[in-house]
Design a protein around this nucleic acid. Structure first.
Lengths: 190, 190, 190, 190
DNA sequence: GATGAATGAGTCTTCATTCAT
DNA sequence: AATGAATGAAGACTCATTCAT
C-alpha cells in the first residue's frame, strides 16, 4: 500500500496558508505556503486542486474552528445577556488566540474567491446564534430589530474589539468588557 | 483656474482604479485600469510610478472624499448627539452613494499595501471627530472610554450598516436610523 | 499455457495507451493511461520503465498485430496481383477494425519518440512484402522501380484509403476496391 | 507613438516555430520558440495569445505558402495531365525546399490542436484543384471516382514521394517523376 | 508486486514596468 | 507627454518518475 493521504499534511498546509496569507495577503504564492508547510510545491495540489480550493477550504476550516470555540460552553439555560456575553467573550478570545486566522478571515470576507456554497457552509454553525437573536427580539429583551442587524452588530463590534486588542494587547480585558457593555447597552430594550 | 488636462487623466485613472478594484480585487492588472480609464498602459505609470503608489493614492483620494462628505455641514454648535448624528448619516450616505469606493476601502484596510504614512494621512481629516469624541467623554455625555474605542465603534457600526444597506437597499432608511440608535444607546452615558 | 496475470496487465496498459493516445495525442499523461487500464499510476512503470518505452512497445505491438493480420492467409501460390490484393484488403480491413491503433500509428510515424531499433523491428515482419515486391519488379510484372517506392506507394495509398473510410464508413467497400484499382494500375507494367 | 506590432516579428516567430516543432515535435516549449525567434518569452504571447493559437496560425501560414507555390503558374489552358503535372511538381518541390514546414505539416495533420475553422481555411486555397479534379472526372479523362479519392491519392502519393526524397535527396528527380507516372497511370481512364 | 502520495523540474501564461517611437 | 510593444521575472499548475508502505 502506498502512503495514504495524511490529514496531518493537509492540516499543515492549511496552517501554513493561514500564516502566510496573514502576513503577505491572499496574493501570496503557493510556493511560500508549501515551503512553510514543509512539503513540495506539487504536494499542495494533491490536497487542494487549485489555490482557490485551498482558500475556500481555509475559510471553512477557520469558521469551523471559530464555531467550535464559540459554541462550546454555550448554555441554553442562561438568560439572553448571559448567552450573549458567552458568545462575545469566546469570539473575542478566539481572535486573540488566533491572530493569523483572524487577519485571514478579514481578508477572505472581502475577497471574491469564496464560493456561494463556502459562505453558506461557513455560516451554518452559527445558526444557534441566530435562534438566540430571534428569541431575544421576540421576548422583548432587546430592541425590535431585524436579526441581520443584531448579528452584524455583534460581528462588527467584536471584530473592532479584536483589532483594538491586537494593536494594544495589554488592554485586552478592558477592551473586551467595554466593548460588551457598548453592545449590550446598544441593543437591549429600554 | 482651469484644471490641467493631466489632472483629468490622473482623476480618470483613480476613478477607473476604484471601479476595477471593487469588481476584481486589488490583484486586478493595471492594464485593466488603464483600459477602463481610456489611457495607454504606459500612461498610468507617468501618473503613478508603481501600482502600489496608485493604491496608496487611491486610498488617500477615497479618504479625502469621505472626509469632505462627512465634514461638510458639520456644526460646532450642535450638541454631541447632533454632531454624531450628522457624522453617522453623512458617512452612511457616502457609502450608499459610492459603492465602489466603499468596497475598495474595505479591501485596502486589510491589505498590506498601505504605507504607515498613507494611513496617517488618511486619518488626519478626521481629527475633528477625535476632538468631538474627546470632549464628549470629558463632558460626561458619553461613557468613559478611550477615544479609539469611540471611533472604532462608530466606524465598525457604520461599515456594517453600509453593508446591510448594500445587500438590501430598500431598507436603507431603517438600517441607518436603527444603526444610529444602537450606537448612541451603546455609548451614551447613563 | 495460461497467461500470467502480469501479462494481462501489460496488455491492458498497452490497450489503454492506444485508446488514450488516439483520443488525446501522445502528450496524454501516463496517469490517464493507468487509469484507463485500471492499474495504479506506479504500476505502469513496473511494466514500462519510461513513457518512451511504453510508446516504443506500443508501436511494436501495433505493427506486430498488423503484420499478423496482413500475413495470415498470404498465399505464396497466388500471382502478384492476387498477393497484392490480399495485402491491400487485409491492411485496409485492419485499419477499419482497429481505428484507435490506426490513429496512434499515424502519430507515432511522425513522432520523434521511436528509436531506430524500434522502427527496424516494426518493419521486419513485412519482409515478405519486400520479397514479393522485388520479385514482381524482377519478373517485369510491375514497373521498374526501387522497392522503397513500391512499398511507400502501397502504404501511402492504403493509409489514405483507411482515412477516407474512417470519415465515410458506408463507402468502405467502394473506397477499398477503388483504391486497389488505382494502386494496381499505377504500378503494373504496361 | 509606441513601437508598432511588426509583421517581421510575427513572421520570425512563425518561422522559428516551424523549425523548433519540426525538430522537437509540437510539444516543444514556447520558450524554445521565442529563443529561436530572438524575442522575449512574453513577446510570443503578444502575437499569439496561446500556444494553440500559434499552432493554428502556423498551419494556416504553411498551407497558404504551399497554396501559393502550387497555384502560381497553374495554367487553365493546359490539359488535365499537364495541370496535374504542374501541381505534382510544385507540391513535391515545395516539400523539398521547405523540409521543416513539411515535417510540421505532417504532425499538424494528425494533431488535435487544429480547429475546424483552421482546417477549413487551410483547404480553401486548393479549391481550384478540386475543380480540376471534378472536370477531369466529368470529361472522362480520369477514372470515375469521388473527388475525395482523387485528392487523397495525389496528396498521399506526393507526401510519400517527399519523404522518399528527404531520406535520399540524390534521387529526387527520379522519385518525383516516377511518383507522377504511378499516380497518373493509377487514375487515368483506360 | 501493487499502490498512490510525494516530488520538483518544466510549462504556459500573466503582468508590472520600461522604453523606442 | 502619450503610446503600446517588449521584457522577463514570477506564478499556478502538470506530470513523469520515485519510493514508502
Amino acid at each position: 500500500m502506498a502512503r495514504l493521504r495524511s490529514d496531518d499534511k493537509r492540516e499543515a498546509i492549511l496552517t501554513a496558508a493561514a500564516g502566510v496569507f496573514a502576513e503577505r495577503g491572499l496574493a501570496a504564492p503557493t510556493s511560500a505556503i508549501s515551503k512553510a508547510a514543509g512539503v513540495a510545491e506539487g504536494s499542495l495540489f494533491t490536497y487542494f486542486p487549485t489555490k482557490d480550493d485551498l482558500i475556500n477550504a481555509l475559510y471553512r476550516e477557520i469558521k469551523l474552528g471559530l464555531a467550535g470555540a464559540m459554541m462550546s460552553g454555550f448554555s441554553r439555560q442562561a438568560d439572553v445577556r448571559g448567552k450573549l456575553r458567552h458568545i462575545w467573550d469566546s469570539y473575542v478570545n478566539w481572535g486573540i488566540a488566533h491572530p493569523a486566522q483572524r487577519k485571514v478571515l478579514a481578508q477572505l470576507q472581502v475577497s471574491d474567491k469564496l464560493t456561494r456554497e463556502t459562505r453558506a457552509v461557513g455560516s451554518a454553525p452559527f445558526a444557534e446564534v441566530q435562534v438566540m437573536a430571534r428569541q431575544a427580539v421576540e421576548q422583548g429583551v432587546v430592541r425590535d430589530m431585524p436579526i441581520e442587524v443584531f448579528t452584524s452588530t455583534i460581528d462588527a463590534m467584536a471584530t473592532a474589539t479584536m483589532e483594538l486588542i491586537a494593536s494594544n494587547p495589554s488592554q485586552a480585558d478592558k477592551y473586551r468588557s467595554l466593548g460588551f457593555e457598548v453592545v449590550w447597552s446598544g441593543i437591549r430594550n429600554g
